[in-house]
Nucleic acid binder design. Structure first.
Length: 549
RNA sequence: GCGCCUGUAGCUCAGUCGGAUAGAGCAUCUGCCUUCUAAGCAGAGGGUCGGGGGUUCGAAUCCCUCCGGGCGCGCCA
């Protein structure tokens, strides 16, 4: 935590200095310097404190620098402090501090930079949760990639994370699914049928019907077809997610909420809290009390609970299971739903922060520039399985996480296929494979690195490319903290590309296996650290780190 | 009509709490393999950050307004 160390150093020194007369140090930024700026870490503190000190930013900067400099702790971490431009303060990190970080990476490996941000808090993350009315399509893939990576990241900083998939197995959509399969079954057996107007028209419905054995006497009701279809489709969904390296802790079945009268209990509870009232023979949830634009029906006048009733109950069920925090990952087309679910959390007395809903913009799909429709109902869609089969799991996951959740993702299938050898995922994986290859070569020549050996002279790593690499590696803990703070895995994807770039550049300029034995070991040590961070980063976004390509 | 998201290089997009000369990949052009993997490296060109106004030491970022794109607005799920 290089940046945090410097932050504490600055505020500590400023507080102690009586001359300045500061009681409280304001918030200030501390970031990695842009490439064209001389220096490693920069801060804007001079701008912020200028007013307080009643001087111009450059003068404030001078005062601050004077206060920090000439101190033993400062000297160990910071080699030089410079005032730049209109008031930025730039710090130069000592090589000794960088070597120390390097040592720590190799010693702690996967635990390097481990921060206990989560403190064992129970957090549940629910994602994909597509209705089992058809195979997963490419949009679900984005939700899966975001949810699973976020879970990995949160898990790595000390949260107790559980991943869950919510299965909607009741309601109109499911009835329609049953009707659709039933119709196709009859059709296959020579009966003339009228296919339901709004039924599911995809070819996959026929394939399900085709799986049904001929002998279904006594099971002609829609119920049989419904269950058969759900089970069949869930089988596909589970298989596709497994192929995508997504493992769930629990598959929660909606109808279970009704077995224990949980929905009735929810309604009674909210009635008691005066958030449910009756009007026109229906029960309404008073979501307007929490900023929703209108109240919402939870039980229709025909006594059927709505989808929202299940959803509210499901969230209560999660809290009752002891989770401190819930994360839902939804496609942006559900954004109209956010307010009412959020309202239900507050109605029950939970803090609004206890539920975080992450919306991801839908993936628009095109094939050679031609937009493709993506409706499950019409049956025209590209499945997640097709995409995984075509571009591979790694490229697919990487691609989904290369942008923030809020940006529209345009996925051109032809382009994705054509680009696959140039895909950035290979660039990163290649860096890892290259490092592995160097280690193999080194071993052939009898150089076998043992990181626990303390006689490797890291001081030999003097090239600017080497120091740059270490600085990038030392940023890893901050990167994780950033990803956690913003609930956004895409930072990891950007980082790992930058790290790979710095490595490839280094590889091109400097040879590891040379005549100088001490230098070989120092460089192997550095590469070992790069390998550890590459692997860890790739793991967090669910991408493999191959030893050979 | 109302609400959410969005507009940055030819294309696809990054840009953390408002920071320095706005970045990356692709595409285009120019160099680099007798040496640890060329799925690589180095370099070049390419910008009124949708338009206008405001806030301030400083705005792609915050506020107002206009224009464009996506999505959502049921006693559907």
């Amino acid at each position: 935590m290089l940046i945090e160390e410097i932050r504490e150093l600055i505020s500590g020194r400023l507080r102690k200095d009586k001359k300045l007369g500061i009681t409280q140090v304001p918030d200030f930024s501390l970031e990695v310097c842009p490439a064209e700026i001389e220096g490693d870490i920069s801060t804007n503190i001079a701008f912020i404190m200028a007013k307080q000190l009643k001087v111009s930013p450059p003068k404030a900067g001078k005062l601050i620098i004077d206060t920090i400099q000439n101190n033993k702790t400062t000297g160990e971490i910071i080699q030089k402090i410079e005032l730049a431009g209109k008031g930025f303060i730039n710090f130069f990190i000592t090589n000794e501090k960088l070597y120390k970080e390097l040592l720590e990476i190799c010693r702690k490996e996967n635990d390097y930079g481990k921060q206990d941000i989560g403190k064992g808090k129970k957090i549940q993350i629910e994602f994909v949760s597509a209705n089992p009315t058809g195979p997963l399509h490419i949009g679900h893939g984005r939700g899966a990639a975001i949810g699973d990576s976020l879970a990995r990241i949160l898990d790595s900083v000390g949260y107790d994370v559980k991943k869950e998939y919510y299965i909607n197995n009741r309601g109109k959509q499911i009835d329609l699914l049953g009707e659709s399969v039933k119709a196709r079954y009859k059709e296959l057996h020579g009966e003339k049928i009228e296919f339901p107007d709004d039924g599911y028209k995809g070819e996959y419905i026929k394939s399900i019907a085709d799986e049904i054995l001929d002998d279904i006497k006594g099971k002609e009701g829609t119920q049989f077809f419904k269950e058969f279809a759900i089970n069949h489709i869930l089988g596909w969904i589970k298989r596709d997610l497994r192929d995508f390296d997504v493992e769930y802790d629990r598959w929660f079945v909606e109808s279970d909420l009704y077995k224990q009268n949980e929905v009735e209990n929810m309604i009674e509870e909210l009635k008691g809290r005066d958030f449910i009232y009756e009007e026109n023979n229906a029960l309404w949830f008073k979501s307007t009390a929490f900023g929703d634009e209108k109240d919402r029906v939870v039980v229709r006048s025909d006594k059927q609970p709505t989808y929202l009733a299940s959803d509210i109950t499901y969230h209560y069920d999660k809290f009752n299971r002891g989770f401190d925090k819930l994360i839902d990952i939804w496609g942006a087309d559900h954004h109209g739903y956010v307010k009412r679910v959020q309202a239900s959390i507050e109605a029950m007395g939970y803090s609004p922060e206890a539920l975080k809903i992450i919306l991801y913009q839908l993936v628009s799909l095109s094939r050679a520039g031609k937009p493709q429709p993506m409706s499950t109902r019409s049956g025209e869609f590209v499945t997640l399985k097709e995409v995984i089969d075509e571009v591979g799991k790694d490229a697919c996951r990487f691609f989904f996480l290369i942008r923030g959740a809020n940006s529209h993702l345009d996925f051109d299938l032809e382009l994705a296929k054509k680009q696959s050898p140039d895909n950035p995922v290979y660039y990163v994986q290649y860096a890892h494979a290259r490092i592995c290859s160097i280690f193999k070569e080194a071993e052939k020549s009898g150089y076998r690195l043992r990181t626990e050996d303390s006689n490797v002279d890291l001081g030999l790593l003097k090239e600017s490319e080497e120091l740059n690499l270490i600085k990038k590696l030392a940023y890893f803990p901050e990167l994780i903290a950033l990803s956690v703070r913003t609930y956004d895995p895409h930072w990891v994807t950007s980082y790992v590309q930058e790290l790979a770039k710095i490595f490839h550049n280094y590889y091109q300029k400097h040879r590891v296996i040379t005549e100088n034995k001490d230098l070989i070991f120092a460089r192997l040590f550095l590469l070992q650290a790069v390998k550890i961070i590459l692997r860890k980063s790739l793991y967090l976004i669910g991408v493999n780190a191959p030893e050979r390509m």
